[in-house]
């Protein structure tokens, strides 16, 4: 469904991603693992074209989307959930959802306010609160909910478990599995191996912007030395 081919990305003169190559199959959850600063967020942004890869291609559903403006990538069905919980703090929860709303997409769930509130009951009570009044966990839920309003076929989750309470992390894991059951394809970046193990089918490990391992979760579990070398457990 998504193919990342020989992608190289730069910030100014700094070479951040080095020949990344991996695929995400439709209906699976793939975890992008790596330590802080490994290039996970840049990978996400390079797929969304928020960072333009200097070389290489990103292919989504057979279409080369490299160089597209980000809004076009989003409209093609790629939903992006940023790491820093970039909700619109001056807008209410409902208004945040409104910004994310896109026309229905064939073959995808058409999300409504009520449906995302079913998924995240905490948000329902706070629908008229401004974003800045939400807790960290609620903000994280809102970023996901907002992206779902765009009715994506594929969702990019950047460190969904970062900096939130363990009980909410569990809830996040349930949500991701539910989204998978609904037919969504997910690429999530993580430092938290436990969280990844709970949801992922496939694994990509990167370090210093270079790919170190691509395979299934069971393959990774069969090679603990890889885990120890590239991930802090």
């Amino acid at each position: 469904m998504l193919e990342v081919k020989d992608v190289n990305s730069f910030y100014g003169k700094a070479h951040v991603l080095n020949d990344l190559n991996f695929n995400v199959e439709a209906g699976t959850v793939v975890a992008l693992l790596g330590r802080n600063g490994a290039g996970k967020t840049t990978t996400m942004k390079s797929i969304m074209q928020l960072v333009r890869p200097r070389s290489g291609t990103v292919i989504y559903k057979g279409q080369d989307i490299t160089g597209w403006p980000s809004h076009k990538v989003a409209r093609a069905g790629l939903g992006y959930v940023p790491e820093e919980r970039r909700i619109f703090t001056q807008l209410t929860v409902l208004e945040n959802l409104e910004v994310g709303r896109q026309p229905p997409r064939e073959g995808c769930t058409t999300w409504t306010d009520d449906m995302v509130f079913d998924l995240f009951p905490n948000l329902a009570e706070r629908r008229n609160n401004r974003g800045k009044a939400l807790s960290g966990g609620e903000q994280q839920m809102l970023t996901i909910a907002r992206t779902l309003m765009g009715n994506p076929a594929f969702i990019l989750l950047d460190e969904p478990s970062e900096g939130i309470a363990p009980v909410i992390v569990e809830q996040m894991a349930r949500v991701i599995l539910q989204l998978k059951r609904e037919g969504l394809t997910v690429l999530l970046s993580e430092q938290n191996l436990h969280f990844a193990q709970a949801v992922a089918d496939g694994v990509v490990i990167i370090e210093h912007g270079t790919q170190k391992f691509v395979g299934s979760l069971s393959e990774l579990q069969a090679h603990p030395e890889i885990r120890d070398q590239y991930l802090s457990v």
Binding site: P82, E95, V99, G150
Partner: peptide, 13 residues
């Protein structure tokens, strides 16, 4: 929304 974060608005389509 764009007043606060243009890039995010764009990433939302």
């Amino acid at each position: 929304a764009a007043t606060q974060d243009r890039e995010m608005v764009s990433a939302l389509g």
